[in-house]
């Protein structure tokens, strides 16, 4: 293990970087190569900036989802909360004339509040989070319709600061904010006490409780964070569409879950990575854009995307087993070995 000098650059990289990320990056590059071969127009800066500017909302949701999955929970309400907080931002901006920073805070505040309710009910009343957030999905969606009178609310140019590409760079401030979210989320999960407690709770909650840690409030925090990030997702999406649409984010919770599991996050809790989730988001977005460019029809796109999700998780499971075998020094079995 202690070989340092004299090895190839590739070897050094393999030593430094988490092998999980390398695998995910490999899949991404593979997809790029594939689409480049299939389409003349694919390989261009424009394609990549388009993809980058598409992903901020899903990224915010998927990071929150990773946190919730880490503690062994699930949050089905994130898509509806995205619509509700986007709607709330539309109302305070257009009808109440609030300035933009306060409107953003309002959107995230609404998300956090919903997250708090999710967390409080599921952890203090011990109702499974699947049920609580399934109900909340309907409640939040209904509330979004109520406050917008079921109509898309046009917001206009006020949000361009967020969703217009920065000149000379091609990408939007929203994407940068999403990238920062990923980095902060990764650091919270891997380097902080809260992150450690989350992993521990997802592994064995009772053991954590008996170690004198307040597991219930940590679970509430996690749902609040997921809500807050859904609110941020609402901001990103409204900005991209220049309007608040109460129909936004339908089935987006499923994309967020898909992104997380493609990244190797376990639905049973205790295992997951924010960076890998971000790779998952990129893979989904790349597939969407690439397949569209190649000219695949919408139905076929869905079939392919669905298959890729399952294949990715199968590959991840296989890789994990292989890695575990290698760590234990299991030799590959020779044919004909007695």
């Amino acid at each position: 293990m202690s070989d340092t000098g004299g090895k190839s650059v590739w070897h050094n990289i393999r030593q430094q970087v988490n092998p999980e990320y390398l695998g995910m990056a490999g899949v991404l590059i593979g997809l790029v190569v594939l689409f480049t071969l299939l389409s003349d127009h694919f390989l261009s800066l424009r394609t990549f900036t388009t993809i980058a500017n598409q992903v901020p909302d899903l990224t915010a949701l998927a990071v929150g989802m990773t946190f919730v999955l880490m503690i062994g929970g699930i949050d089905l309400s994130v898509g509806a909360v995205l619509a509700l907080s986007g709607a709330a931002m539309g109302v305070v901006l257009v009808d109440w004339g609030w300035p933009l920073p306060m409107a953003i805070c309002a959107a995230m505040g609404v998300g956090a509040l919903v997250g708090f309710v999710n967390g409080a009910i599921s952890s203090w009343w011990a109702v499974p989070s699947f049920i609580v957030t399934l109900g909340m999905m309907e409640v939040a969606r209904g509330a979004a319709y109520r406050i917008t009178n079921s109509q898309t609310k046009y917001i206009g140019s006020q949000l361009d600061v967020i969703a217009e590409p920065i000149r000379g760079l091609g990408i939007t401030p929203a994407f940068l904010a999403a990238a920062v979210t990923v980095i902060v989320g990764h650091l919270v999960l891997t380097r902080t006490v809260l992150g450690r407690y989350m992993t521990a709770i997802g592994t064995n909650e009772e053991a954590v409780r008996l170690s004198g840690i307040n597991t219930r409030s940590i679970k509430v925090y996690v749902f609040v964070i997921a809500g807050l990030l859904s609110g941020l997702g609402g901001v990103f999406q409204s900005a991209r569409l220049s309007s608040a649409d109460p129909n936004a984010g339908i089935a987006m919770e499923l994309s967020a879950i898909a992104a997380a599991v493609i990244g190797g996050t376990s639905l049973m809790g205790g295992r997951g990575s924010v960076i890998s989730t971000f790779f998952g988001v990129l893979i989904i977005a790349l597939l969407q854009t690439g397949l569209a460019q190649v000219g695949v029809s919408e139905p076929s796109k869905r079939i392919i995307t669905g298959s890729v999700i399952v294949a990715a998780v199968m590959a991840d499971t296989y890789r994990r087993r292989y890695a575990a075998g290698r760590r234990r020094g299991r030799k590959p079995r020779k044919p004909g070995e007695a």
Partner: peptide, 13 residues
């Protein structure tokens, strides 16, 4: 197993 260890986590954790 049930009330003590986090079996998939490290000795350190």
């Amino acid at each position: 197993k049930r009330d003590g260890i986090l079996s998939t986590q490290t000795v350190r954790t």
